[in-house]
Design a binder for these strands. Structure first.
Length: 428
RNA sequence: GUGGGCGUAGCUCAGAUGGUUAGAGUGCCGGGUUGUGGCCCCGGAGGUCGAGGGUUCGAUCCCCUUCGCUCACCCCA
């Protein structure tokens, strides 16, 4: 035996037993998103590194230490996308999609790459469903997008998602808040954990996120973003919440919530559940009114979210079996005995497939019992038996495995066979 | 990048304070019915006990190193 080569760390195979479920989630997303006026966009997995540096922010953890970046033949630095928004916006600008309609609603899904240490719910290649609305800054749109997200999560069978919202302010009020925090923290350095003392320099807002009890305690009396919002941001947040109320959408304002990507402004939100371990966010997103302009496009507001596919699917294990059956189960198994019968089975099997009937057979000349066993294992509802008797009578035996009944059918009565299998006609 | 836990059959796991052919369940293949699945019974294949080195008469077990997996920190979907 030769040495095996395994998939690399943090990269996972999505096996046949799982893909049925993935397809179901994708189908639901397409259906729900299209009802809300979204169209699919498909963008490259590799982009110029600068796109992410400018889009996500040079000082973020993602750009600083998590990107898969490489030099392409000594020319450009390229990067495997760590998230989808930057690429979508790049494409939006490059193709002047803003000129086609004042409002552009886009969704996409696919793999993202971040070089983090893998753990439960966190992989180096992971998949996201991503949706973006460009061209409107009306706070009602923020609520509408969240309505769509929550509806999708429910439609897919996710139990008990928790919605948390916050406002991060805009480029006017965020610096004000940042200063409030640095002022508040000054002189209290002793009380914080080592991580937080570091955060004071790099990203003071993150101190809110700390899980250490003493840090949390100090921060309870700290000023909150919502206190620092400018008039416009405060108004946006209020009207956003009003719109959520119209939908009877339960939510919690979490002033401690911060986002890891620099482009977010105003509305930020996160959907979490308690069943995911430490990586408890299933979806997250927010408004990014300055991003399109920062990437060289027209001054266009935007908002979007990303759903973690693997995390979503992990919460849906109960549905796995159904999906697998729906996609993987053949309609008919043809069991043939003898060389002549096998020849007929081979022709018939492929003829039925061309008719859209999922048909399987055995090529190894196994015993009837063994073939029946396989048919049962594949969960085929019907088995067709072809042997000397059937050839003599010019009729195959069609067996309903579920009802344990069987009846003869003519070899050439394809239409009849098809109808029986589809449940449109009785077996006899 | 840092720390904890774990590596024995395809999968889930036993095992002996170091001793001769390493076990179970499940899955897979076959038989019990020479033309009929599920349940039951019987049989079979499948393991360099993660890898390398050390101690020992002898190591899957003890020691060191290494690789892998996993959970958590960090960060986020």
């Amino acid at each position: 035996m030769k040495e095996t080569i395994n998939a690399i760390r943090g990269f996972k195979d999505i096996l046949p037993r799982e893909t049925g479920q993935w397809q179901m989630v994708e189908e639901t997303a397409r259906q729900v998103f299209s009802a809300f006026g979204f169209n699919e966009i498909r963008i490259p997995i590799v982009e110029k590194t600068d796109l992410f540096k400018r889009g996500i922010g040079e000082a973020t953890d993602i750009v600083e230490k998590e990107m898969y970046t490489f030099l392409d033949r000594g020319d450009d630095y390229l990067t495997l996308r760590p998230e989808a928004t930057a690429g979508v916006i790049r494409s939006y600008i490059e193709h002047s999609l803003h000129a086609e309609d004042a409002v552009t609603k886009l969704y996409t899904f696919g793999p993202m790459f971040r070089r983090e240490r893998p753990q439960k719910g966190r992989y180096r290649q992971f998949h996201q469903i991503d949706a973006e609305i460009l061209g409107i800054d009306d706070p009602r749109i923020d609520a509408e997008l969240i309505l769509m997200l929550m509806h999708f999560l429910t439609a897919v069978g996710l139990a008990g998602p928790k919605l948390e919202i916050n406002s991060l302010g805009c480029k006017e009020c965020r610096p004000v808040f940042r200063k409030m925090i640095t002022d508040f923290v000054r002189g209290k350095e002793e009380g914080f954990c080592p991580d937080c003392t570091r955060r004071m320099q790099t990203n003071p807002l993150r101190i809110f996120d700390c899980k250490v009890e003493t840090c949390r305690e100090i921060m309870t009396s700290a000023p909150v973003v919502l206190d620092a919002l400018c008039g416009a941001c405060r108004d946006h947040f209020d009207r956003f919440r009003e719109a959520l109320t119209i939908f009877n959408m339960p939510y919690e304002v979490n002033p401690r919530m911060v986002r890891g990507l620099d482009y977010y402004t105003k509305t930020a939100f996160e959907v979490t559940t308690e069943l995911l371990g430490a990586q408890n966010a299933v979806a997250g997103g927010g408004r990014y009114d300055g991003l399109v302009k920062d990437l060289g496009g027209p001054d266009t507001p935007g908002i979007g979210f990303a759903i973690g596919f693997e995390r979503l699917v992990a919460l849906m294990q109960a549905h796995d079996e159904d999906c697998r059956c729906r996609h993987g189960r053949p309609d008919l198994f043809i069991a043939a005995m003898g060389e002549e019968a096998q020849g007929m089975a081979f022709a018939l099997c492929n003829k039925l497939r061309l008719e859209g009937i999922r048909t399987e057979m055995d090529y190894a000349g196994k015993s009837l019992k063994s073939q029946m066993k396989r048919a049962d294992k594949l969960k085929c509802r019907y088995t067709m038996i072809i042997g000397d008797q059937e050839i003599a009578n010019n009729q195959a035996t069609l067996r309903d495995m579920q009802e344990s009944r069987q009846a003869p059918v003519g070899f050439h009565q394809i239409v009849h066979i098809k109808k029986v299998i589809k449940g449109e006609k009785p077996l006899d």
